[in-house]
Design a protein around this nucleic acid. Structure first.
Lengths: 232, 232
DNA sequence: TGGCTTTGCCACAACTTTGCCTCAATCTCT
DNA sequence: AGAGATTGAGGCAAAGTTGTGGCAAAGCCA
């Protein structure tokens, strides 16, 4: 069950928010002051903090800052309508959302759920492919060999991606041209040689004796994973 | 048809509100006191409750609490202007919205519709997003880089928001155009260059050597967060 | 091994893409 | 309507990429 820490100096607010959020299925802890909040935060780290910026004594922003120093826990700030500056400062500090007083507990619940939903949604599974020690993120258009970032041109990247996606299969130069340039208007096939050469230079440890970009005499090229185990 | 229960001790208000809401297409029941409201609530559970806090005998907050004990039905509170203090805030915490006396029936209707709309709407979209040291409040259309408030045009803001929401992913100019302008009626792609340039000028510390708005040669642009690591 | 085919390679020219300037059209306020 | 801001277009220079063509080297087969 998700734990929420509610920090507010008003007993009424604490009581009502706690009641509402508990009925909504969360485990709620409360704190009435900054120091109390930090103590509770360390003793029982919550999954989310609802923080009133208008605390007596220690400023709510200080509390937020202190929490951020040690944790990435989501924070929802509560601000008064009039204190625009606090909202801005709070957001700069890395608050994840805010509600403005007076707010309805129902709205708070909705925002709490939204923050959790966002936090739980995976970091958007990257479209990553790999073979022969090469790894490519097609969306970012980043690529690595044995952990080292590569610097490829657009065409090189596309050619490599194609080979990685069809590792160990041999292609003719025309096929490679078509795969990379869409329509294979029969360009001079020797161009492929150049691209393979450039790829070898950039990704092979010893470009002069290629282990990955293998020439298939009389056919073309293939990306070989020979003698290489690929992690699933 | 949506059923609304109106709780108010003033016969005039009951009559007026009932008449207006019925003409607006709702089925309306009324109650003049707390106990009456609860009886009616159990006998004919409504889809929404409009509740005056100033009831004789049982306090309006008590009624709200009793309703909440058994139901999540939306509640709109009616409060007097004079009692706008922390207590009012507390009272409002259990409600979905509130109107302040004196209120127009038209305003009440608007709030009723808004509450219904909210209840039926899909999960809340985030209104605070961030990436690469950039933070944006989509609702207020404020944005910051490293704590500094930005002054962006509408289009710049939308473009930046899109990039922040899809950080690290490379997009073609056409994709960016479409994301920002809705339909990508193939406008001149070079316009994107201009916008990227303007964004660089406004948010990069050294616009001449951009670290965030990265050109992906042969593809387009991407918003890069930090040093890229190989995905697991 | 000899004769034929295929590949590697090079430097550079041709080409593509981007950065950015300016200006005009459009939009937004007052 | 007018002033000011915003946005798109065209164009040019700079930066970066890719194809070319020929020759040397290597592979294949009888």
């Amino acid at each position: 069950m998700k734990r929420i820490l509610v920090v507010d100096d008003d007993p009424w607010v604490r009581k009502l928010v706690r009641g509402y959020l508990e009925r909504a299925g969360f485990a709620v802890a409360v704190a009435a002051s900054g120091p109390e909040a930090l103590t509770e935060f360390i003793a029982h780290p919550p999954d989310l903090v609802v923080l009133d910026l208008m605390l007596p004594g220690m400023d709510g922003l200080d509390v937020a800052r202190r929490i951020r120093d040690s944790s990435r826990v989501p924070i929802i700030m509560v601000t008064a309508r009039s204190t625009e500056d606090d909202r801005v400062l709070g957001l700069e500090l890395g608050a994840d959302d805010y509600v403005i007083k007076p707010f309805s507990a129902r709205e708070l619940e909705a925002r709490v759920r939204a923050v959790f939903r966002r936090a739980e949604s995976k970091p958007m599974a990257p479209r990553v492919i790999g073979a022969a020690g090469i790894r490519m993120d097609l969306e970012r258009r980043d690529s690595w060999v044995d952990g080292k970032l590569l610097d490829l041109t657009a065409l090189e990247f596309d050619l490599l991606a194609f080979l990685v996606q069809h590792a160990n299969r041999a292609f003719t130069r025309l096929e490679l041209l078509e795969a990379v340039r869409g329509t294979s208007y029969s360009s001079f096939e020797r161009a492929v040689d150049s691209h393979i050469k450039r790829l070898r230079k950039k990704v092979e440890p010893f470009p002069e004796s290629p282990s990955r970009f293998v020439t298939v005499y009389g056919v073309g090229y293939k990306l070989s994973t020979e003698g290489r185990r690929e992690p699933a």
